[in-house]
């Protein structure tokens, strides 16, 4: 039995003296597993990710990570002050040693070839997300952690970005821990979905979660029609085993 990458037991997180953002979290992330975290705004999704990665210390409870776990982190947003001159290539090799060829092939892999010498500030939103992903992949991570990586992308952009993550994950065999603000698009790729609202409301396979009353109470049913439809097309292209999950969401739309 291979040890899990991350094991959280009885974890609560609070900022300052405020009420806990997260309470009584028990969670295990296994090697190669794709877990999507969903929940309404302020439900503690980002905090969950930070606690799991060791970026935030829990108030109580324990977080164990595999020794020297290699993490590739894609932050929610990155505001770069325009006074800081930084090329894409320099950003990608931030904190790690990479030669020019590796940088170029990484950038090609994530679908933005030829931007290596451009200033980071000149990229579009979609290009920037892909460069963030390239940087996260540069260290050949065992765990790819993404915090709402598709903010600001349009729907085709979101679908393409998730497809890219799926492909990359297949190649690297890394685990993926993804915080999402939209359940419908990411469902098919996930082994497990965690529905969060200050605590873990429900978790399980995408189809189980989308059928769970806790999930429906949080998200309702009518919000994701267009995206679920897009998901449907996307599934056809990839012939994914979790096709049924997308269907289920779609079917329940009024």
């Amino acid at each position: 039995m291979i040890a899990p990458l991350i094991r959280m037991a009885g974890v609560s997180v609070a900022y300052g003296n405020a009420a806990p953002v997260l309470s009584r979290i028990d969670f295990v992330l296994n090697v190669g597993e794709i877990v999507t975290i969903v929940g309404p705004n302020g439900s503690g999704k980002s905090t969950f990710l930070k606690a799991a990665l060791g970026m935030t210390k829990p108030l109580v409870g324990t977080v164990e990570r595999e020794n020297r776990l290699r993490i590739g982190y894609v932050p929610q947003r990155l505001h770069l002050d325009p006074s800081l001159p930084l090329t894409v290539a320099r950003f990608v090799k931030l904190g790690q040693f990479l030669d020019r060829n590796s940088i170029d092939s990484l950038l090609s892999r994530v679908g933005v070839p030829g931007v290596a010498d451009r200033d980071l500030a000149t990229l579009s939103g979609g290009q920037f997300q892909r460069v963030l992903l390239a940087r996260a992949l540069a260290g050949k991570p065992q765990l790819l952690a993404l915090d709402e990586p598709t903010q600001g992308l349009d729907q085709p952009g979101i679908a393409a970005f998730y497809r890219l993550i799926e492909d990359v994950r297949r190649e690297l065999g890394c685990a993926v821990l993804l915080v999402s603000h939209d359940l419908h698009v990411v469902m098919s790729a996930s082994d497990r979905v965690l529905c969060l609202n200050g605590h873990i409301c429900c978790q399980g396979t995408p189809s189980a979660v989308s059928a769970a009353p806790e999930y429906r109470a949080l998200f309702g049913l009518g919000t994701g029609g267009a995206l679920a439809l897009y998901q449907h097309n996307h599934d056809h292209a990839h012939d994914h085993p979790d096709h049924a999950a997308a269907h289920e969401v779609h079917v329940h739309d009024p």
């Binding site: 990665l53 970026m55 993490i71 982190y73 932050p75 929610q76 990155l78 770069l80 950003f91 931030l94």
Partner: peptide
């Protein structure tokens, strides 16, 4: 550049 990236 990013406190979060640094933390990770």
């Amino acid at each position: 550049i990013s406190e979060e990236l640094a933390q990770s």
